[in-house]
Amino acid sequence: MTTLALNRQPSAAWLGTLTRSREFSVFLALAILVTATVAANPRFLSAQSTKDLLLNSSILVILAVGQAIVIVTKNVDLSVGSVLGLTAFATGKIFIALPDLPVIAMLAIGIGLGALLGAVNGALIAVAKVPSLVVTLGTLYIFRGVDFAWAQGQQINPSNLPESFLALGSGAVLGLPYLALIALAVVIAFGLYLRNYRSGREFYAIGSDVLAARLYGIGVGRKVFTAFAISGALAGLAGVIYAAKYGNLDATAGQGLELNVVAAAVVGGVAIAGGVGTVYGAAIGAVLLTTITSALPVLGVSPFWQRAMIGALILASIALDRYLALRTERRLRGHDKHAG
């Protein structure tokens, strides 16, 4: 409603652009949710619970950024949950073998391992030219199978992990948890890259119109490959973080997570049809989904409604996207008529 009122006033044009943006509508939904929850229980925004909210959403935010980049190219990566599980377990195994490994080195190993798994997806999709939905559904099974075969029911306990590593999972600087800072850095870095760099904008070109992108000289296959490698690398990073945050883990870590990740991106305005959306939107979508899980118990809503509400939110988001797209189209058409 605000958007309609504001976009008629030229003086507030920047405000109009901001409020009309898709990210704003997700942000508004998040703000309403938080306000309602705080009204029900002021402790929802206490220092401790704000820290909890940030910590809880950091893993999903990182995964949603990778997923957004993949979806923008008109693909989808369903294997992220399995990649996360495999790298989380690998993290535990590596620390058991090398207890003195610096935390930063472990993060690098996780990113590298994730990128490798993502590259497997990317290679199959770009080189063998097969649909990403099917390939990543296949690697969802395969990576999880490798994880199970490796783990054989073993469990990693906090006592297997170095203190400094576990501190990464719960520690904070100036009230901001490390994990939230890592997630924020990932969001900003990829946000700037996609918006301001030519190679970043090429992802959108592929998603909007692959033939035009090819005519324009963009190496489509290489670009799609890169998108999957990035998604894998971020899932790898998320896997290491998962290990730091939970300490206790087995081969089932991250099972079923892919659905939430895709949902976060879609809710954040990244269009499944490709070419539209930003990592900022996906990140806010991820925070929104996590906050719902935390807010429902506080609001006294039966936990059984939670999943149904996430489903309804996805449907509302894509319907909203469709509406906004149609409105833009109509406005552009109207404009053309005036010109002609």
Binding site: V76, L133, L259, V262, A263, V266, I272, A273, F304, W305, Q306, R307, A308, M309, I310, G311, A312, I314, L315, I318
Partner: peptide, 15 residues
């Protein structure tokens, strides 16, 4: 798009 719609209803109906 049916992919997005049915991911949504997958969560909705299970919920």
């Amino acid at each position: 798009p049916s992919l997005a719609v049915t991911i949504g209803t997958l969560a909705l109906y299970r919920g």
